[in-house]
Amino acid sequence: MEVKNLKKYYPIKKGIISKTVGYVKAVDDVSFSIYPGETVGLVGESGCGKSTTGRSLVRLEDPTSGQVIFEGKDLASISKKEMRELRTDLQIIFQDPYSSLNPRKRIGDLLAEPLLAHKLASKAEAAEKVNHILETVGLSKHYKNRYPHEFSGGQRQRIGIARALMLHPKLIICDEPVSALDVSIQAQVLNLLKDLQKEFNLTYIFIAHGLGAVKYISDRITVMYLGKIMEMAKTKEIFEHPMHPYTEILLNAYPVPNPHMRDREQIVVEGDVPSPAHPPKGCVFHTRCPFAKDICREKVPELNGTDHLIACHFPLSQ
């Protein structure tokens, strides 16, 4: 999958005639590619546009402009009907396991539904597949007559994952799939996702605001800030040689379970994320960057590099 210059602006409307007075630039000119079988982590603070990016990729949001090339087709411009057919290859796992399952449907029906809706199986076949998928995600097949409210968060998330797998997708957007879970359950679900990736040859886009889960699961990491990509590189590279000041700050914010490291030198970030309705001129991070110079306030840095992409006028030296 190839994402080119993806933009998603939300108009800000005012007055009785709903005049558009400005835009919230949730995703602003984002480009990256994902190779089959890999996991790309997407990290950033709340409101940086990572979820909007994820949702635009499966057209839960219609992008304002840009292209999402998948299997040779541009998802951003094809018709709804064509999109419906392609949806079998593209799935999404949601953050909140309490709102992602229809409370009025039994687990069995909920899981069989995708197959029946796309006429991919008869009722009996679907029931068989439901049994199989429940066991694959580590749940008993006897659960299929239960309702979602009878399950814990971790179990619900497994059901959500099972539902996404029913259509045998190629790519799954994991929209903060473990953020709402207990730490102990997080590990279980992450391991499950890893196992499933091997078993079904899946490609993941893994969205998270915490670095822990992302580090564990991702092959490459993309760091976003205010709707723009700041840095993109292999997981190891990002953690060992972060080049963007923002990445460095994110890494510092991630607690290290080692008391001797308590006094390590840290770059501390000050202030809040500026409003995406009025993003700063030049480099969007300059308002909070400890190294900001005049050029940062004037010129938008390009995303440059081959393996290790970075958008900064003054990358940290290695």
Binding site: R84, R87, T88, F94, S100, A117, L167
Partner: peptide
């Protein structure tokens, strides 16, 4: 706005469904 409705869209269910 609930995720299960978004999931329905992502799973390619028809609008009436």
């Amino acid at each position: 706005e609930m995720d299960y409705v978004k999931a329905g869209v992502a799973l390619g269910y028809s609008t009436p469904k």
